[in-house]
C-alpha cells in the first residue's frame, strides 16, 4: 500500500505542478524493468485477485509515469535529462543480471528474471537519490514520495519477521535485497525525519 501510495503521490505531484523537476525518470525506468522481469508470472500463475490487480497497477502506472515525463507536455518540457543522467544501464542492469544468474535458486528463465528483479529493485532508488543530492533542496511532495518509496521495503522486513515465525517462511534473496534497499534509504530518512521534526524544508548536505 505504501508502494502504491508513493506512485499515486508522484502522479498527483506531476499533475498538480505540471513539472517533474527533481524527479528521476531513470528510477521509474528501473522499476519498469523490475516489474516486467518479476511479473512475467501474470501469464502462467494466479495467486489472488489482489496480487494480480496490484501487479497490473504497478506496471501500467509506472509506464504512464515514464510517458508523462518523457513525452507528454507540459510535464515533459520540464524534464532535465542532463541532471537525470545516472547510467543505470551500466552500473545497475549489468550487475543485477550477473547476480540474478549466479544467485538464482534454479537456472530457469522465470527464476533468473525474478532474482535479477530483486537485486535491481534494491538499487533502483539510486538515480533518484543522486538527482536529489545534486539539487539539494527537496520539494515537499517529492520528499513524501521518496520517503514512502523507501518505507514500503522496511515494512516488508517487518512482515518477513512475522512470516518467519508464523509460517516458517524463508526468502533469502528477498531478505538480502530488502536489507540493501532499506539501507540505501536510511541516510535520506534521517534528513527527511529531521526536516519534519523541525518543520523545515528538506535540504540534503
Amino acid at each position: 500500500m505504501l508502494h502504491l501510495m508513493s506512485i499515486l503521490l508522484l502522479l498527483w505531484k506531476l499533475k498538480k505542478s505540471k513539472s517533474c523537476v527533481g524527479i528521476s525518470c531513470r528510477m521509474q525506468e528501473c522499476y519498469a524493468i523490475v516489474f516486467c522481469l518479476r511479473y512475467l508470472d501474470l501469464f502462467y500463475q494466479f495467486i489472488s485477485v489482489y496480487n494480480t490487480a496490484m501487479k497490473v497497477v504497478f506496471i501500467s502506472s509506472t509506464f504512464y509515469l515514464i510517458f508523462l515525463m518523457r513525452f507528454q507536455p507540459p510535464v515533459s518540457a520540464t524534464y532535465d535529462r542532463t541532471a537525470d543522467s545516472f547510467p543505470y544501464e551500466q552500473y545497475l542492469l549489468g550487475p543485477a543480471a550477473v547476480l540474478g544468474f549466479i544467485s538464482a535458486e534454479e537456472w530457469s528463465i522465470p527464476e533468473i528474471f525474478w532474482t535479477a528483479s530483486i537485486w535491481l529493485e534494491s538499487v533502483s532508488i539510486l538515480p533518484q537519490l543522486i538527482l536529489l543530492q545534486q539539487l539539494r533542496e527537496v520539494e515537499n511532495l517529492t520528499a513524501e514520495f521518496v520517503a514512502t518509496m523507501g518505507a514500503y521495503r522496511f515494512f516488508y522486513i517487518l512482515n518477513w519477521i512475522y512470516r518467519y515465525f508464523a509460517e516458517g517462511y524463508v526468502n533469502w534473496i528477498g531478505w538480502l535485497g530488502g536489507i540493501v534497499q532499506t539501507g540505501l534509504y536510511v541516510d535520506f530518512f534521517y534528513y527527511y525525519a529531521m526536516s519534519k521534526w523541525y518543520g523545515q524544508k528538506l535540504v540534503l548536505p
Binding site: 495467486i47 501487479k55 535458486e105
Partner: peptide
Amino acid sequence: GKTAQGKDEL
C-alpha cells in the same frame, strides 16, 4: 501447495 519463496509477494 506452498508458493515458492517470495513468489506470492509484489
